[in-house]
Design a protein around this nucleic acid. Sequence first.
DNA 1: TTAATAGTGTCTGTGAGACAGTATCAA
DNA 2: TTGATACTGTCTCACAGACACTATTAA
Lengths: 279, 279
Amino acid sequence: MQASAEHRGPAASAAGDRSVYRQADDYDRGMPYDPSAFPPFAVTVDLVVLTVRRHSLCALAVRRAEPPFQGRWALPGGFVKADEDLAQAAARELAEAAGLRVHDPAQPAQGGTAHLEQLATYGDPHRDPRMRVVSVAHLVLAPDLPAPRPGGDADRARWAPVEELLQGHDRDGEPTPLAFDHARILADGVERARSKIEYSSLATAFCPPEFTVGELRRVYEAVWGVALDPRNFHRKVTGTPGFLVPTGGTTTRQGGRPAQLFRAGGATLLNPPMLRPEV
Amino acid sequence: MQASAEHRGPAASAAGDRSVYRQADDYDRGMPYDPSAFPPFAVTVDLVVLTVRRHSLCALAVRRAEPPFQGRWALPGGFVKADEDLAQAAARELAEAAGLRVHDPAQPAQGGTAHLEQLATYGDPHRDPRMRVVSVAHLVLAPDLPAPRPGGDADRARWAPVEELLQGHDRDGEPTPLAFDHARILADGVERARSKIEYSSLATAFCPPEFTVGELRRVYEAVWGVALDPRNFHRKVTGTPGFLVPTGGTTTRQGGRPAQLFRAGGATLLNPPMLRPEV
DNA sequence: TTAATAGTGTCTGTGAGACAGTATCAA
DNA sequence: TTGATACTGTCTCACAGACACTATTAA
């Protein structure tokens, strides 16, 4: 697996030594082509990979092996290759970092695959101390993966509750600040996920292929960090056409009375939306 | 003013001649730093600048002076400079292309200034036939500008109704397809604007500093392309706390009974949202 | 006067929130 | 049995949509 592109390599700075590059204006004026005619950028993808584990929203973090920020946690990511689309690069990094495959975007959530979408692009000139790196962040929503401990090296990657990563310390008070501007990227990704499950059926991307209404409710509760009324929630999601499709089966894996199993339906936009409490 | 960075310069291809570049993997493996250790990218900003003129949603388009796509219309844009943030680059291009200044994001809409936000990033390897260009598109919402005909050269820039630009021909059937993937970028920007005025007060960014309820309603009608009930609209916007602040003045510039003038209030999120008809 | 826009009031249906009550399992 | 979760039904309030009505200007 790979960590962020900013991780590796020595600390030489290209952006700081601009005199060796002709300015972009020369290129604008139609001068003969020269690869150094415009400022050189490295382009990377960084991934906010979210899942719900043990009733809390967690993100995938990897430990940096080299300076800068050596030993700190960071979001997974890497370089975009020369012949690769941005979404392709993100999907490739996701496979390398977490062994996850991506949905066909035309289909609703399939089993064991993840939802991927572009989040935002971060290009502060000094976000990487060594050189000019523009990172196209992507958001991934994945079901809780029982087996595939990412990469196998549990000490180099982990699922951490997002509050822990955003506050910069774990429950024991040990400092765990994210490298670079990754706390900001993570915060933006979490906010996108929180708002997007309001008006879309994306919450099902956090669920296994077949799930109960109660399991879906616990996803909403974990992502929003609130408690929802089980009865009103049940009425709402089962009454929204195209959101849930019953499979016919039932399960008692949550205890109590057997619950109907559902798959995600074809609807992607919920209208009217799910309402997030505390308005 | 400047047009898209993809406009100018000769048609030499860098991305096509990859053998001269060491692969990013070498950089990953901690090899000594070398500016050519990662694939070379040009990074640009492209602008979707929207305004409402004569009851229709219009976008700023500029005419390309050089190949490829010579003579075709395109979105304004340009290179990101070596020491520039992405938002800075977008604001600079906006000033150059349309003479528009950007709001202080902390403040609600001020007079004569525009709202700017990042839209999405487009990085298909072949979106520019000459070289690898990643474009960070930005969305700008601007009030209708009576005077500043962009750049002064009316023949190189114009406000065009978005349907015209998206359909690829004007009302006379003359073909006017946008260069590169700019039709896709424009469509994404228009969709963002359409959905964002539902749940935010951003529609006021299309209005002059002081405006009437009727003028704000005509903005919604132009952006959504629908007719709204004036009485329900009035009740809704004046009843949403923080959306509108009365200035005390009135105007009859729309004819009929004098209408109260308002400024944009401090609220940025509307709750409950404005509902777009045809659900 | 007419025509236009501004603004208020009233009714009705949808749906969210609160919560009583019943159903069906495991231990 | 207790205790958990699943599900149904009912009441109330907020609010969107439809639309009757009045107010104030210009021509």
